[in-house]
Design a protein around this nucleic acid. Structure first.
Length: 318
DNA sequence: CTACATGCCTGTGCGC
DNA sequence: TGCGCACAGGCATGTA
């Protein structure tokens, strides 16, 4: 469920609450949540304990905290050591990062617990909670970004963790542009939604926001990307950014308690969705324009797609 | 290159 | 009441 806006809400919470603090103590409560870790949970504990969190960054749905060893100068000023490792987190379907007081009872699906250095008014712990265990945490080496500009949203060091180097530029990254997408897509026969969900070209788009952006540009999900002109790709990118920025303003999309921000609050963008999850309802745009469009749900690649039966019809020849 | 299948997980809601 | 099953679904990996 967490897509780009939800992960970005979490990242911003981490900037406010955990950046600048030291990891005093770590507990792995379920080793399955550190599955990608070379060396297993023991290596994870060794790499994170006593490190200072220097930033919170993100590319697509991959989230990370940069870690640096504490130096003597940290006590008096802000010139710490350069971070060389990232504490990666992917929320998967049900992952949560909560910043809480130590007195809070342990959650049923608590997987990793970080006790942080004291800071006035700030809760003592960062907790990773994950019901379905599609997400996880692990350590990855930071490397220079191969192209110019920041490696991720929130990154100041032009670096990218190796674990996210196969992920394409983020929808909200200013360096993402229609020309680059056109170059990637012009010779591809794959459909537009397939292309959006492929995180290696443009990242952060999942099932919900793909359907919402396609609704906004009145496109059928199977339209081959090679058919899109530069102008049409520009409009699609603008639609993606608009829907994601609106979702950010609403604190993200929550259908249930599985997605929350670092303080445990749900987002309310689900009320603003036009297509996703609205099978059988009139298309809001068609209703305004006096047209008969209904939102339909269709099986698509092993899951569901939602589109308007009137303004997102299958292109001719498909 | 591209597409499609599979494993990883658990809670919820349905039909019987 | 309880059991089995479909569904939610991103990503890594393997196969055709």
């Amino acid at each position: 469920m967490p897509e780009l806006p939800e992960v970005e809400v979490v990242r911003r919470g981490l900037v406010d609450w955990v950046v600048g603090r030291r990891i005093e103590h770590v507990e792995v409560h379920d080793s399955r949540s550190v599955r990608r870790q070379v060396g297993g949970p023991e290596a994870f504990l060794a790499a994170t304990s006593s490190m200072v969190i220097t930033s919170a960054a993100r590319r697509g749905k991959f989230l990370w905290l940069t870690l640096a060893p504490e130096t003597a100068s940290d006590a008096g000023n802000d010139s710490g050591a350069e971070p060389r490792f990232a504490l990666m987190a992917h929320l998967g379907m049900s992952g949560q990062m909560l910043v809480e007081d130590a007195e809070q009872p342990w959650e049923r699906h608590l997987k990793v617990r970080f006790v942080l250095s004291e800071r006035d008014g700030a809760p003592a712990e960062l907790r990773f909670i994950d019901q379905r265990i599609f997400g996880g945490m692990w350590i990855s080496e930071l490397t220079p970004t191969p192209d110019h500009g920041p490696g991720g949203v929130g990154d100041q060091a032009h670096s990218i963790p190796r674990a996210a180097s196969h992920i394409g530029r983020d929808v909200l990254d200013p360096m993402t542009n229609a020309q680059a997408l056109r170059k990637q897509w012009r010779n591809k026969r794959t459909g537009i939604k397939n292309a959006l969900m492929d995180q290696s070209v443009i990242s952060g788009v999942g099932n919900i926001y793909a359907d919402e952006a396609l609704w906004r540009v009145r496109r059928h999900y199977d339209t081959p990307v090679s058919r899109l002109s530069l102008r049409e790709i520009g409009e699609l990118l603008e639609a993606l950014r608009a829907v994601m920025n609106s979702a950010l303003d609403a604190g993200g999309t929550s259908f249930d308690s599985l997605y929350v921000n670092v303080n445990g609050a749900s987002g309310y963008f689900d009320r603003s969705l036009n297509a996703y999850g609205r099978a059988g309802e009139p298309c809001p745009r068609c209703e305004r324009e006096g047209k008969p469009g209904l939102i339909v749900r269709e099986p698509w690649g092993g899951r569901s797609s939602y589109r308007c039966s009137w303004c997102q019809r299958r292109p001719r020849g498909l």
